[in-house]
Design a protein around this nucleic acid. Structure first.
Ligand SMILES: [Zn+2]
Length: 249
DNA sequence: GGTGCCGGGTG
DNA sequence: CACCCGGCACC
C-alpha cells in the first residue's frame, strides 16, 4: 500500500476552455454560476446546475511537480455536501501551461510525417495537459489532390479566414470497387459475367482509425451529463446531434 | 446497447 | 439559416 498521507482535492471547471481549478467546491460553484451561467446570485441560490460543469480531482502533493499521473476525476454529484476543508492554496490555476514542448509554435501537435498511423494508446496520460483546443486536426494537412481542377493552380490557397478552427475532415475516399465498370446496357448478349468473387480486396480492415474519424472525445458530453430527460439543458449542438460545443475536450 | 457526431434531410 | 434524424464508429 502507498503512504498517501498528503492528498489534496481540487475542483476543475469543465466549461469550454476555462479549465479553472479551485480548491473548494463552493468556490468553483460560485465561479461557474457567475462566470459561465451568468447568474448574479449572492450566495446560495444554486439549483444544482453548476454541479454539471466541474469535476473533483484528487492529487498527491508530492507528485504534483512532475507526475500528475494520479488524477482521477470523479463525478461531483456524490461529494459530501458539508463544508469544504478550508485550504486556500492559491496560484494553482494554470499549472500545466508551461508544460508543452517548445517545438509546437502554432500547430496543435507536432505530429511527425504523414504516413505514420500514429497509434496512440493510453491517451489518458496526457489528458491533463489540457491544451486549448487539442482537438480536431489529427489529420495530416496534405490535400489528397483528388479532383484536381483543370487550371493548374498548384499552390493550394488555404484562405485562413479565422485562425480559430479550420476543419480538414479527412474522410476516407469512396473505395466502392465493384469489380469493373458496370455497363448498364441490358443487351449484353449472353456473357453475363455474373460473379467473379466480388471480393473488395482494396479495403484494409483497420484503416487507421485514428485518422479516419476524429477519435471521439473523452469527456462527458451534454447528453450523458444531463440525461435524456433533461434534453432542453443540452447545448444546441448536442441537441442536433452535432459536435458538442460546451464540453469541448 | 449507449454515446458522440457526420452527413444529409426538411421547413 | 435552424432543426432533426439515419447511420456509423466507438465504448
Ligand atoms: Zn453539448
Amino acid at each position: 500500500m502507498l503512504y498517501c498521507n498528503s492528498m489534496k482535492v481540487m475542483f476543475k471547471c469543465l466549461w469550454k476552455n476555462c479549465g479553472k481549478v479551485l480548491s473548494t467546491a463552493a468556490g468553483i460553484q460560485r465561479h461557474i454560476r457567475t462566470i459561465h451561467l451568468g447568474r448574479n446570485c449572492d450566495s446560495d441560490c444554486s439549483d444544482g446546475e453548476e454541479d454539471f460543469y466541474y469535476s473533483e480531482i484528487k492529487l498527491h502533493t508530492d507528485l504534483v511537480a512532475d507526475g500528475l499521473s494520479s488524477l482521477s476525476p470523479v463525478s461531483p454529484s456524490i461529494l459530501s455536501p458539508g463544508p469544504p476543508p478550508p485550504s486556500p492554496l492559491p496560484s494553482f490555476n494554470q499549472l500545466s501551461d508551461s508544460h508543452r514542448p517548445p517545438q509546437s509554435s502554432d500547430v496543435k501537435e507536432p505530429h511527425a510525417g504523414g504516413t505514420t498511423p500514429l497509434s496512440r494508446s493510453a491517451p489518458s496520460a496526457l489528458y491533463l495537459i489540457h491544451t486549448d483546443h487539442a482537438y480536431q486536426a489529427t489529420a495530416p494537412v496534405s490535400i489528397p489532390s483528388s479532383s484536381s481542377n483543370s487550371s493548374g493552380s498548384a499552390c493550394t490557397s488555404f484562405t485562413p479566414s479565422n485562425s480559430s478552427n479550420f476543419s480538414i475532415s479527412w474522410q476516407s475516399p469512396p473505395v466502392t470497387f465493384t469489380g469493373a465498370t458496370v455497363s448498364p446496357s441490358k443487351s449484353q448478349g449472353f456473357g453475363e459475367q455474373r460473379s467473379q468473387t466480388i471480393a473488395v480486396l482494396s479495403s484494409p480492415p483497420r484503416a487507421t482509425t485514428a485518422l479516419s474519424r476524429k477519435v471521439r472525445g473523452e469527456g462527458k458530453k451534454c447528453r450523458k451529463v444531463y440525461g435524456m430527460e433533461n434534453r432542453d439543458m443540452w447545448c444546441t449542438a448536442c441537441r442536433w446531434k452535432k459536435a458538442c460545443q460546451r464540453f469541448t475536450d
